[in-house]
Design a protein around this nucleic acid. Structure first.
Ligand SMILES: [Mn+2]
Ligand SMILES: [Mn+2]
Ligand SMILES: [Mn+2]
Ligand SMILES: [Mn+2]
Lengths: 218, 218
DNA sequence: CAATAGAATTAGGAGTGCCTAACTTTTGCT
DNA sequence: AGCAAAAGTTAGGCACTCCTAATTCTATTG
């Protein structure tokens, strides 16, 4: 039986493993807000359920089964987020936490109806791609804003969605998916960036810049 | 901490206790689909949490706290059912099971938005009254159709919502909340009723009649 | 290459919620 | 009243998911 915790674990592993890197116990513990001991136990269980391959003391990788499960939950999560914004008019900074619970409670039938009502959307409110029902996901060619050099131009394609305060800050600055931006200048001292965003300008710390991904022009 | 199980238990106790009758372990076990031993354990826990008053071997009653909790969950349940029918266009026979899970996962904020979107409705899709946010609920003056005598006229105010097959059957016959009906005749042999319903007529067994409540004329 | 810091695991325990089997209390009937 | 059936509770166990503390393994570094 796939429990709520199982789903949250494979989702976290999927995010952390990126292009198939092995995921450590401690990174999962930090992400999920539990102790390493708890993660160790869960990983043994997920290994037995063939959701992950566990190599003791060297981390885990998702199996095909685990990947499929993760993408299913991510699809749920992102469709629910968009639904909350579009249909219930909830502010985008609160929908992540809500979706974190609802993703486990919504049936396939309800999800299909939400998908239809929204017109089978491709992106969630924060710009993240929504996996297809069969588990395909568009991989974006993107760069994190804090990794950009002066002169870079592009469009914001995604922002990280888990910190409501950060999201409020980003919308105040106009740093939302779809916005055209360019990097004007980077302060030596603290890597603060001067950004042109549409017709406005703003200053962003590395911490804020790390929450923004852009797709570069050309 | 109030768990999902706690919520389902107090909701079941609320339904079974009616006008403050004491609720037996076995009736709860039957309603919830668990063993009497499981119910015994949970009731001890709910008693310690002051959600119920437990008198060993003589059943439980909700405390004020338990009643409030039950009505909160019932409000969630019914608003979610109506939302599923009205907004997601789900057939009314499937929404009960769905709401049974979602009632535990939806936040107060989402619930308030659902309530607003629906225009603060008073009744769920099956005609049951929706408690107010503060826990008031309209008590209906109603009779179960299988308790009626020939000649009785009235309006269907509520149908029981937990059996999808029954609900499909009722909608096929037109026995839905709001329908005007009258009892034409009762067969001696098996208590089958001949019912006039709008312009049509239909025959209902006691089992089906027990799923329909009417408010009598006058 | 051995000492050690840091990462991971194991041991032991808690709360939740379910089960079966055994036991106790209540109830209904003669 | 007395006995048996029915109803309810307790005992013992399991799966889940978390915790702290103790232990073991890996990786770094002098
Ligand atoms: Mn999210
Ligand atoms: Mn979640
Ligand atoms: Mn429920
Ligand atoms: Mn209902």
């Amino acid at each position: 039986m796939v429990t709520n915790a199982d789903q949250d674990y494979v989702k976290a592993i999927y995010r952390l493993q990126g292009q198939n890197r092995s995921v450590s116990t401690s990174s999962l513990a930090a992400t999920l807000g539990v102790t390493s001991a708890s993660v160790s136990g869960m990983l043994r269980k997920l290994d037995q359920a063939r959701m992950v391959n566990l190599r003791r003391y060297r981390g885990v990788r998702l199996t095909e089964r685990g990947r499929r499960t993760a993408l299913e939950v991510i699809r749920r999560h992102r469709l629910i987020e968009l639904f909350l914004v579009e249909i219930l008019r909830m502010p985008w900074e609160n929908v992540h936490g809500e979706a974190e619970r609802l993703e486990h409670a919504v049936s396939d039938e309800v999800l299909a109806r939400i998908d239809k009502l929204l017109g089978s959307p491709q992106r969630d409110p924060h710009g993240s791609p929504i996996p297809s029902p069969s588990g395909e996901i568009a991989l974006l060619d993107r760069v994190r804003l804090d990794q950009t050099a002066p002169g870079v131009r592009g469009t914001i394609c995604e922002v990280s969605d888990d910190d409501p305060e950060m999201l409020r800050h980003l919308s105040k600055l106009g740093l939302i998916p779809g916005a055209r931006i360019d990097v004007r200048e980077i302060q030596q001292i603290d890597e603060t960036r001067l950004i042109g965003c549409g017709k406005k300008r703003c200053t962003v710390s590395p911490k804020v810049a790390a929450a923004v991904w852009i797709s570069k022009d050309q």
